[in-house]
Design a protein around this nucleic acid. Structure first.
Lengths: 156, 156
DNA sequence: GGTTCTTTACTCGGATATCGGCTGTCCGAGTGTCCTCGG
DNA sequence: CCGAGGACACTCGGACAGCCGATATCCGAGTAAAGAACC
């Protein structure tokens, strides 16, 4: 899995601790973890295209969360970065086998494909059940100093 | 995910329909789906290293299943081909952030890492719950002609 | 006829090229801000 | 003093190289079988 997913998740979480009307630049978010600025910017662009962040150009510009915290699931972020394709991609090799029918959609018929898809759905269900709001609440309960420390590092 | 996983899964399933004392060459298994022989051979080698198949050299050689059908899970096959690493790899970027502690193992501490690992475990649990025996039984129930057709194509 | 040895052909196994996608970087378009200048 | 205009600096956005792993391939080591030769 793409490394940018980790950056995107942490960046969304960090953005949840700054005032919603305050935009944070990619440079600030990158400096927070010593990440390459331009490359993180690329991931943030993907989040903006997915409607998770909203971006503003110019001075005082940057990124901010575009939705309520409990309306952003971990699956949303993963899909924004990695794409919506499932991990196991059925190439329908049964079509080239003995008794293969070119008119059949083996992604729906093949038992192995169904089993792999079932596992993939379990993974997605788990990710869709956790929102940034959940994560934030857990972090605040375990590490009370995090919100203030994060805000201090991101806002000038 | 690696395309060889699909080939490996179908090959294991196909091998389940030939007599256990009969070895099938990589060439036969590849011809079944018009796959590149040498590359499929590479995947079969990985399955052999994992103890899922046993290989025999020389004439009348080839691959055969090394374990009982109900002792081979889909997860076993996936791990043999893809490796045991989980999809989401936590790089512990919190170590480089404000308040980061180099002595802490953030793969266990980071809430996001835990959430991603939880989803990964759900995926693995689903794959570990299905064995080649299960798949074979389902296929035989839905497509009764498959066992004979497969055996005819694989044994001389 | 039986046994042993040799030859042979066949198979796996690992070492070797090739390609696509992730990683990393750069510069231009757009925009809000601030300063200056005029009324 | 107030407002308008312009220059400026800052930010995102997409276009451009580099590198690692997956893809695809080939040839050699090992082996079991088959056949020939000998007893």
């Amino acid at each position: 899995m793409n490394e940018g997913v980790e950056w995107a998740l942490h960046s969304c979480l960090n953005l949840s601790w700054v005032e919603p009307d305050r935009a944070v630049t990619a440079a600030k978010l990158a400096a927070f973890y010593n990440l390459p600025t331009a490359y993180l910017n690329k991931q943030l662009q993907a989040l903006a295209r997915a409607g998770i962040l909203s971006s503003t150009s110019g001075p005082k510009g940057g990124f901010r969360l575009a939705r309520a915290l409990d309306a952003i699931t971990l699956l949303d972020v993963v899909i924004a970065i990695e794409g919506a394709d499932e991990a196991f991609r059925c190439t329908e090799i049964l079509k080239d086998g003995p008794g293969g029918d070119p008119t059949v959609d083996y992604r729906e018929t093949c038992v192995l494909s169904q089993a792999m898809r079932s596992a993939d759905l379990a993974w997605r269900r788990e990710l869709a059940a956790r929102t940034i709001a959940d994560i934030r609440a857990t972090v605040e309960a375990r590490f009370p100093g995090t919100p203030e420390r994060t805000r201090d590092a991101l806002v000038p």
